[in-house]
Design a protein around this nucleic acid. Structure first.
Lengths: 287, 287
DNA sequence: CGTCGGTGATACCTACCGGGTATGACAGGG
DNA sequence: CCCTGTCATACCCGGTAGGTATCACCGACG
């Protein structure tokens, strides 16, 4: 009576995101009429009007928006349960979650820290196997939420730590990475305003969930590509200090005076109760 | 193929908690055979062995324990979605969650703070309606998780803030509440050790989820009952400083020197995006 | 040592409901 | 005024969730 099956949630999410029964049905791999009926049943069961059926298309009601947000969290939690259970399966270790952890890391970031962490942890007495999962820009949070990862290295203020437990690992300043030949590369320091407003060097734009922020700069989805574009004098980028590790000869790093410091955290779902995870966290905080 | 219906989750949770198919089926209001089959299907779909069927009864495998924990979170999230959606329904306010908030408070705690908060918030321009939900000892977290509440007043270190966003509101010391006539009531201060070891005044035990910690003291489930027992010289209790508000004439409050300070927070689910909630938090932090 | 009680698993049946197809109702746009 | 695109309705079918009856197993106990 008040149960809310995940199937219904999936259906509603599709409709709420597409705002179109036909497209939503297609995305779900089903026909439109059963979808309509399912949503109607859902509304009746909840005793709530979720969608405003206008002549042309569909709009969310207030309750619909609530269910869109809360349902996303619920679906993530459900798929996380499935994934983590699967991962714990196979060789079911007696008396506890299996000794395997998936660590999400922003691809290419925190080289050195990651290296030290894996190294130190591997030396621990009963270390679990760590699978490093490179993630796209800033989606470590989603990976923790939907169970693709068990623990993540996250970078405040880019990642939001809301909803996770975390420990601070490292604080660093930020640098601008410029073509070595560029006039600004001679400066000892720069400000964000100076870097963001160079006529011949538009700021690179990084993809987030497949979309790019507006601006004149090139769209980046690969660090090598970015490095090349900088080397060719086509763009400039801002990175944490540790990015110096991968600079090319054609690059120059200039510290930024007014950029917010980047704090690298190790973060995990607040309800985690895994021994292996606890060990990794302990190792990380002792680095 | 990887979907994990909530029905299956409910079934598994019942079996995992009861460790007995018959009782679990009864609790679920169904017969035992379909339940057995459902669990088997679940195991096949996940490709994982969840339960160890022994001759007598059932035991959880490692994967089963993972699913027990993760599934609890997932089920809480879905029932939270249902509850919050229902609550937002009815008069669906255009363009946003409905103006109603449920605030969970430990029954009888933080009188004055709560009063000031509600008062200050009611004076705000477009204040939402606040429903105050008294909760049993320390279960505000569960209420936030499963959607019975939208926001809570929590008291570190008794409540765990893990998984929630929170703001600190108030820090206070703790006091021992003694019968006025007792010899120790004459002291200016006391230590935890002194209070916990009074031969004729065993420490009161408060219920948590229907169970009580071990000890000689009386079992308390009602503040009035506790007050009476103290007044009668039968027990002693430790409370935050603000408990002075409800002391009787027959009570004496003695500050504790070594008790950890109690920090009252306002806490809410990290993913919340409600305007009304934001307003309440803003009001609370300005108190 | 045989039987009984209690466990979970199996066999089989039924009814419901999730999903498909065909079609309707309705509003805008040309 | 029809045509198009939208969501809703009507109807049918098959899968499956759930029920009952029963089995297979083992431990306890007389």
């Amino acid at each position: 009576m008040d149960t809310l099956e995940t199937r219904e949630l999936r259906y509603f999410m599709a409709v709420a995101e597409e705002l179109h029964f036909g497209r939503a049905a297609e995305r779900l791999g089903m026909a439109q009429p059963p979808l309509s009926r399912a949503i109607q049943q859902l509304e009746r069961r909840l005793g709530v009007c979720l969608l405003e059926r206008n002549r042309r298309g569909v709009a969310l009601t207030g309750a619909g928006e609530v269910l869109l947000h809360e349902g996303r969290a619920a679906l993530d939690a459900t798929t996380a349960a499935a994934r983590r259970t699967r991962r714990a399966g196979g060789a079911d270790s007696p008396g506890g979650p299996r000794n395997r952890l998936v660590l999400a890391v922003k691809a290419g970031a925190s080289h050195e820290l990651l290296y030290k962490l894996l190294d130190a942890y591997a030396a621990e007495p009963d270390a679990a196997e760590i699978e490093v999962l490179p993630s796209g820009t800033c989606e470590q949070g989603e990976m923790l939420r939907d169970g693709r990862a068990d623990v993540a290295l996250m970078h405040a203020p880019f990642n939001s730590l809301a909803g996770f437990d975390s420990e601070e690992l490292l604080t660093e300043g930020q640098i601008a990475i410029l073509p070595a030949g560029h006039p600004l590369a001679a400066h000892k320091t720069l400000s964000l305003a100076e870097v963001g407003d160079i006529p011949d060097l538009p700021l690179a734009r990084f993809s987030r969930h497949g979309t790019y922020p507006p601006g004149p700069g090139p769209e980046i989805h690969d660090q090598t590509q970015l490095a090349q574009l900088i080397a060719l004098g086509r763009t400039v980028a801002v990175f944490p200090d540790s990015a110096r590790a991968w600079l090319w000869a054609e690059h120059t790093a200039v510290p930024l005076t007014d950029a917010p410091p980047v704090v690298t955290h190790i973060a995990w779902p607040a309800h985690s109760r895994s021994l292996a995870l606890a060990g990794l966290i302990r190792t990380a905080t002792r680095l």
